[in-house]
Design a protein around this nucleic acid. Structure first.
Length: 379
RNA sequence: GCGAUUGUAGUUUAAUGGUAGAACGUACGGUUGUGGUCCGUAAAACGGGAGUUCAAUUCUCCCCUUUCGCU
């Protein structure tokens, strides 16, 4: 009953596992599948909130740990929560910051109780527990919170990945209990949603254990974590398929950190509903642009004189108004407006592909759409 | 004209009587729950000539060159 309210499947493709749905949050409803631009520090780099709206990005994800360090959740709460703080009136998701544990500059050590981090700005040592993390995300007042997880590196031994799975599950239980307690008094339609995160690298047995234990906790949705770290996307899809086969159909599934168009379409075909990644914006700033025939390295000399738009088939504001030569010039000159135009295009491209995918799922032509896309998109 | 001074990748520079390093720029590659403008690889230089020396980018001389001063 309760979970039906959070997520409704509106259509399932006749040939694949792809589905369209509606995800209901306290700030509104969004169509799935969708892609979230990352706005770690309450800002999508080089893209402002009206532009996000124009692009069609209805959901963004920021980072609770990073915001905790600066400016602090107290300030965000005082200023009306993340929604008002950054004036983004779509749906706000927060990541716990578990992912940052793999960053050498910030991680110290972890144990059953929590994680020791240091603030690289001033060296302050911080001890983060699942409970504390839930309080931070609630103070930020995002619409969807993520559990604090322990993310192993791709190259770590199976033993240490197994330990990460154990911690992730332990912390997920504590996140769930504390999160429920914190918002007990709020009416159901004002409550923040909470997603669990699975780990286990590319090991099917660890992934299976991880997802089975998490499923018992009845989260609002489930995230597949720990990918985009070096594994091939075929290894990744095998795990996605496995996790999908275990999870209940009526829960939204979020593949964390994945942003390449083909990977996203493959995952949609397996029934994944949500994505986020720094890839579109980071690549844009560094000169790799999405096009319908594959990534375009705009900084290459051959585009110096090109009067073409980034992508001839793209309807975005940038492609309607600017040449490759101009944007290349701006990027080479480190002009911020170049990063802005490039980021705008990449986010539009990805958002648009997924919007098209939704249409094709509804008309049961997703399979052909995906096949055609992959055929012309050369990596 | 005289005196001093300078000359090393495209640019700014380092070191050295025995394999000339770097930064920026250039070319190409990478990039996936972002600490902004990141990371990697490659191509690329001793102003010209003569002499001393086993060996000269390095020492000596001449020419050219840079900059400064004096007539």
């Amino acid at each position: 009953m309760e979970s039906q309210k959070v997520f409704q499947i509106t259509h399932t493709d006749s040939k694949t596992k792809a589905r369209t749905g509606l995800l209901h949050t306290k700030s509104g409803t969004v169509k799935t599948p969708f892609f979230m631009p990352v706005a770690t520090k309450a800002a999508a780099k080089f893209i402002n909130t009206p532009q996000l709206k124009e692009i069609g990005a209805n959901v963004i994800i920021s980072n609770a740990l990073i915001l905790h360090l600066n400016p602090g959740e107290k300030l965000i709460k005082k200023l009306g929560g993340i929604r008002k703080f950054m004036n983004f009136h779509g749906i706000n998701v927060t990541d716990s910051g578990g992912f940052q544990m793999y960053s050498e500059s910030i991680y110290l050590k972890s144990n059953d109780i929590g994680v020791h981090f240091k603030n690289p700005k001033n060296g302050d040592k911080i001890f983060m527990t699942p409970e504390k993390n839930m309080e931070i995300q609630l103070a930020i007042n995002s619409d969807i919170a993520m559990c604090l997880d322990s993310m192993p590196m791709y190259e770590e031994s199976k033993t240490s990945i197994k330990e990460a799975v154990r911690l992730t599950t332990l912390w997920a239980q504590r996140c769930k209990i504390h999160h429920s307690k914190l918002q007990k008094l709020k009416p159901k339609n004002r409550q923040q949603l909470l997603f669990g995160i699975t780990q286990g690298g590319i090991h099917p047995d660890l992934r299976e254990q991880s997802i089975k234990d998490l499923a018992k906790l009845n989260f609002d949705g489930y995230s597949i974590g720990g990918f985009g770290l070096g594994e091939s996307w075929k290894e990744e899809m095998k795990i996605v398929k496995l996790q999908k086969s275990i999870l209940p159909e009526n829960k939204p599934i979020y593949l964390m950190g994945i942003g390449s168009p083909i990977e996203i379409l493959e995952a949609i075909g397996l029934g994944v509903d949500m994505f986020d990644s720094r890839l579109p914006t980071q690549n844009a700033r560094r000169g790799t642009l999405f096009t319908s025939i594959g990534p375009l390295k705009l900084l290459n000399k051959k585009y110096e004189h090109s009067k073409d738009p980034i992508d001839k088939k793209c309807d975005c504001f940038v492609c309607q108004n600017y040449t490759r030569a101009y944007i290349r010039f701006l990027l080479r000159e480190q002009e911020p407006i170049g990063k802005e135009l490039a980021s705008y295009h990449n986010l539009f491209f990805l958002t648009n592909i997924i919007q098209q995918a939704r249409g094709h799922i509804k008309s049961n032509t997703f399979s052909k759409f995906k096949k055609d896309f992959i055929k012309s998109y050369k990596n």
